[in-house]
């Protein structure tokens, strides 16, 4: 059982399970699935300052979601220990691998290229751009757009919301631009 669960879960297993989270949270307590709201709750809980956007009762509206995010961290621990993938490299397609080798990626072990996503990588220019600038844009953009991949691409589209479709198209415009025009320059 553990051996089977340690393998890469196919899309037709993982996708529907992720989709079930949306009605599960609605039925559990009328909660709308959306993870980036936690970044706002973190601001409201720690350094709200005089910013009107952070003046609200974060415990009342966000404690459930912060606890949900803590659960995701615990899930990450379990998945990488008890259910650790047996192969050092995950099996991306040959085409993707060739393209990534073309921009200078050499280490395909683990979930991230460790030469970039490590403390030493953080000190390099590409690592800094990817982790710090990338993280900043994720946080800024998610709140500007009113949601991230979970809130718009999954919850919003599931509720047939027009704004979510625009946001998702925007996610892909930005992602394709960085992947094909920016990463070849900085890597």
């Amino acid at each position: 059982m553990i051996e089977m669960l340690s393998q890469t879960w196919p899309w037709y297993v993982a996708g529907p399970l992720i989709g079930l989270i949306v009605p599960a949270l609605l039925i559990a307590g009328g909660r709308m699935f959306g993870i980036s709201a936690n970044l706002r709750h973190a601001c409201a809980a720690t350094i709200p300052g005089r910013v009107a956007f952070f003046q609200y009762d974060w415990k009342k509206s966000g404690l459930w979601n912060i606890v949900f995010a803590v659960g995701i961290v615990l899930g990450g621990v379990i998945a990488t220990t008890v259910l650790a993938h047996p192969d050092p490299e995950i099996g991306i397609s040959a085409g993707a691998r060739a393209q990534l080798e073309g921009v200078g990626i050499t280490d395909f072990t683990g979930l991230l290229p460790s030469d970039l996503f490590s403390w030493s990588g953080l000190a390099s220019l590409p690592g800094f751009l990817m982790i710090v600038v990338g993280g900043f844009l994720v946080g800024f953009g998610a709140r500007y757009a009113g949601g991230c991949t979970s809130g718009h691409a999954i919850s919003g589209l599931a509720d047939l919301q027009g704004p979510s479709l625009i946001a998702v198209i925007g996610f892909f415009i930005g992602g394709l631009f960085v992947t094909h025009l920016i990463l070849p320059l900085i890597l």
Binding site: V133, L137, V138, A145, G170, I173, G174
Partner: peptide, 8 residues
């Protein structure tokens, strides 16, 4: 916002 998020 969507494009900024996508860049990140």
């Amino acid at each position: 916002g969507g494009i900024m998020f996508g860049l990140g």
